[in-house]
């Protein structure tokens, strides 16, 4: 089967290459965390795409970073990679906090200059 051809069976990860018993064992636990992470990631992307308010874009970014962090910690726990995944997640949390502080300051500036935080209206550099 072509690797780019998806069936519903592949999406829910119950295809035949995984072997029996995988869904109840350790890898099954890992995959359930990965599914939650994927759902959160897609919700964050949907928020970023659909909203025009800059604060929604920030909230979607936070959700995406958290989805990535779940994967880091899940692989550290179930993938046999020790505690390094947790250290990466720690750095990501710190950077996300810094990003939120700077981005909210920028949002306040944009609101002050444009009277709105609609990201489609902040186009004074366009022409």
């Amino acid at each position: 089967m072509s690797p780019f051809l998806l069936t519903l069976n592949d999406v829910v990860m119950q295809g035949e290459p995984l072997g029996e018993g995988a869904a109840t064992g350790l890898v099954g636990q890992l995959s359930s965390y990965m599914v939650v992470s994927g759902i959160l990631f897609v919700l964050g992307v949907a928020t970023i795409i659909t909203r025009r308010n800059a604060l929604y874009v920030l909230m979607g970014t936070e959700l995406i970073l958290n989805a990535a962090n779940i994967n880091f910690v899940a692989f550290a726990r179930f993938g046999g990679f020790g505690i390094d995944g947790q250290m990466m997640a720690l750095v990501v949390v710190m950077l996300a906090a810094a990003e939120a502080a700077v981005a909210l300051a920028i949002v306040l500036r944009v609101f002050h200059d444009f009277g709105s935080i609609d990201i489609t209206r902040t186009d004074s550099l366009r022409d």
């Binding site: 780019f4 999406v11 990860m13 295809g15 890898v27 990631f41």
Partner: peptide, 10 residues
């Protein structure tokens, strides 16, 4: 994303 996950999973 789920396809990529499936690759990592295997």
């Amino acid at each position: 994303i789920f396809q990529a996950y499936r690759g990592v999973y295997q």
